[in-house]
Design a protein around this nucleic acid. Structure first.
Lengths: 210, 210
DNA sequence: GCTTGTATATTGACAATGTAAATATCACGC
DNA sequence: GCGTGATATTTACATTGTCAATATACAAGC
């Protein structure tokens, strides 16, 4: 009996699960060589198909990037939810857990994280991306509102400001860290202290909303 | 007498100040069409020279982007210094002024700002960029240390954390704002309130280092 | 004044990419 | 069996970055 999955056999005309394979290869290229090295043809090459095959699944390059960003957002919100769920009920503990998870994700998947927040290259109208972003927003809001629950009578501007401040703090830290902009600061730390300790201290020393 | 600067005359073989002209055109393209539309050939076209002319001044595309980022950093640190200088002596007023100036610059020159913090596309070894970044760091540090002057006996980690927190907060706010990620939050604000008021509230409601 | 060298700009070429059109292969409903 | 639609290939073309060869201007030295 023929086994088309065997090694040196000529590949079948149809891949079978090309979309998934392309996304996997694209992510590998993204994390290995950066976003500017991520090309439609390169992903097709890595997946062992012709250069025009990806068009069937993604349309154009923006489509591939958007679907890949959607994968990232889904993983991202899962990581945030897991971290917050494991942190117990105390609002400040939940907030700190989410901040740590946020930065941890960025450091673990820098290429993906940067792509996710590079709206210029993405098509937010793609259903997959739209839904993934919506899910992430839900995960983020869960903490923001949970944190502000102590002061339910705050004016809307104050509430929004607290949410924005939490988000901006961890997002800015992630961005600066990934871009190497904190290297000087980190190198100036006492022996044995690194980005993790700096983030802890940042979250520790920052009071948002009282 | 001939006037080679006249309108319809055939352009002289040598431009005269091509490097400056290319940087200006590159910035215009960057702000108008985004970074992915900024090409060496496009800038050359806009400056009215041949497609290979830019190579003499920038080497490759990374060179052009790096020099443009250097222009951005110089303008950036000038804006920060001016804002802080106009804010008087009180540390908290200086910090707020710098935060506002930081975000204002990002909103006024979004393409430039994003380019400046996209290290993957830049060559930090370029002297112009290296010096411009160094100057910006000086401007940033001026406030960070000024703000921490009240507690000169703080441990190094605390000091670094305060600087990182200030920076991360305004940088994250800028990035999220430019990427449209705060739109939902801003749209949910009461009538007449926008990004400016949200930033004010963020800076108001956030306490860094007691 | 003339030559020579150097910085600057042009032309031509080449490989890589995104994208579109035409064609081929396959699975499945009928 | 036989279309029919989804998937993949092939071919083609414009654009881009980059390199090599050449042309032009200008300034310094003799």
């Amino acid at each position: 009996m023929s086994d088309p999955e065997r090694s040196s056999e000529p590949r079948p005309y149809h891949h079978g699960d090309l979309k998934t394979a392309l996304l996997a290869q694209a992510e590998a290229i993204l994390e290995r060589d950066g976003i500017h090295a991520l090309t439609l043809r390169g992903a097709a090459r890595a997946a062992g198909v012709s250069h025009a095959a990806p068009a069937n699944h993604f349309g154009d390059l923006t489509g591939l990037l958007s679907e890949l960003a959607a994968v990232g957002f889904n993983r991202f919100s899962a990581a945030l939810r897991a971290a917050v769920a494991a942190a117990g009920d105390e609002p400040s503990a939940r907030a700190k857990a989410m901040g740590t998870a946020y930065v941890t994700f960025a450091r673990a998947h820098p290429g993906l994280f940067l792509l996710m927040f590079r709206g210029e290259r993405l098509d937010a109208a793609r259903p997959a991306l739209r839904e993934a972003i919506e899910a992430s927003r839900g995960a983020l809001r869960a903490v923001a509102t949970g944190f502000a629950a102590g002061g339910a009578k705050l004016p809307p501007l104050r509430l929004a400001a607290q949410a924005a401040a939490h988000w901006a703090l961890v997002h800015g830290f992630s961005m600066l860290l990934l871009d190497g902009r904190l290297r000087g600061l980190i190198d100036s730390l006492p022996q044995g202290l690194g980005a993790d300790e700096l983030l802890d201290a940042v979250l520790e020393t920052t009071r948002i909303g009282d």
